[in-house]
Nucleic acid binder design. Structure first.
Length: 313
DNA sequence: TTCCTGGTTT
DNA sequence: AAACCAGGAA
């Protein structure tokens, strides 16, 4: 690590006790309610956080209840056919997370006696569990006093503590730990996420309603009035992409779960206009197979039109 | 840091 | 068509 040219200047520290009071009071009145906020069951928390990783709350809410009804505990999920888990994931996207979640359940079953670990390192080692999900489970299920940082929280802290530019990951971790409300991590973390989602939005933040407005650098400098600052480089089109085709393949296999589908049928489904070369399809399928989302007969792997593809049993 | 992922929004 | 969201992984 090297010294940055634009080191953040020294500034008077905000009165964190006041900030905590205001934010927690705001949360009491305006915080969102979700099914996964009505319990602290570690397994259910893990399921919720895996679903919430890249999927918005509105899409997660209905799937969440259905999923838990079918797989009520670690043991059930760990022993279920992968196919059923993938099917229960319908509508959530990022199908790989379904496989990751089940593999996590299997690891929990076999390595931790069926008890979701509360330790950050142990959680972090589960497949598909990164910093965010690990800290979310540790805090929300076990009341561990650790920061939970998603992009919303990062943005809130970046604006409140620095104003311009986003805090680096290391800086975010440091600030998040420093600002954590003592003994109130559970409510504090959820409050910051809600502030980020409801008030401190990327575009046109509602600063007038913000519980952090008194100490916010971003607002103090009037940057909230300016144009949208952040900008993301490139992004290939979704239409016709491998991402889209992967999703289409899994969607189709879900509907024909038991028997599986031949390569030629799959090719037509994914590319209705006809496509002689099956190589592109086999490459996609090999990727899906590596991720545990499909099974292929040897014929399919060779590119034979009659080769069969199915969801894993 | 950069890439990947699956959709939705603009 | 392009931008965007939001994590995990390499």
């Amino acid at each position: 690590m090297r010294a940055k040219a634009s080191k953040p200047r020294a500034r008077s520290k905000p009165d964190l006790a006041k900030v905590h009071d205001r934010v927690l009071a705001w949360f009491e009145e305006h915080g969102r309610s979700f099914p996964w906020r009505e319990h602290r069951d570690p397994y259910q928390t893990l399921v919720a956080e895996m679903m919430l990783q890249q999927t918005q709350t509105g899409r997660v809410a209905p799937a969440y209840g259905t999923f838990l009804a079918k797989f009520p505990d670690v043991r059930t999920l760990a022993h279920a056919p992968a196919m059923e888990v993938i099917q229960a994931w319908r509508g959530l996207g990022y199908n790989r997370r379904a496989v990751d979640l089940q593999r996590s359940a299997q690891a929990i079953e076999h390595e931790y006696g069926g008890v979701v670990p509360s330790d950050l390192k142990a959680l972090r080692a589960l497949p598909g569990v990164g910093d965010y999900s690990a800290s979310a489970v540790a805090c929300f299920a076990y009341d561990r006093q650790v920061p939970v940082v998603d992009v919303n929280v990062r943005r809130v802290l970046s604006r409140a503590a620095r104003a311009s530019d986003e805090l680096s990951l290391d800086e975010t971790r440091r600030v998040a730990a420093e600002w954590l409300a003592p003994g109130e991590a559970y409510r504090w973390n959820q409050a910051l996420m809600d502030v980020g989602a409801m008030i401190c939005r990327i575009d046109k933040p509602l600063c007038a309603q913000c519980p952090l407005k008194a100490t916010c650098e971003y607002r103090a400098r009037g940057l909230n009035k300016g144009p949208r600052p952040e900008r993301r480089p490139k992004q290939s089109p979704f239409e016709g992409s491998s991402r889209q085709k992967r999703g289409g393949i899994i969607d189709h296999l879900r509907d024909t779960a038991g028997e599986g589908v031949s390569l030629s049928v799959l090719a037509k489904v994914i590319h209705p206009n006809g496509h002689k070369d099956l190589t592109w399809l086999v490459e996609l399928l090999e990727g899906l197979e590596r991720e545990g989302l499909v099974e292929m007969t040897p014929g399919a792997r060779r590119g034979s039109a009659r080769g069969i593809v199915r969801l894993p049993g």
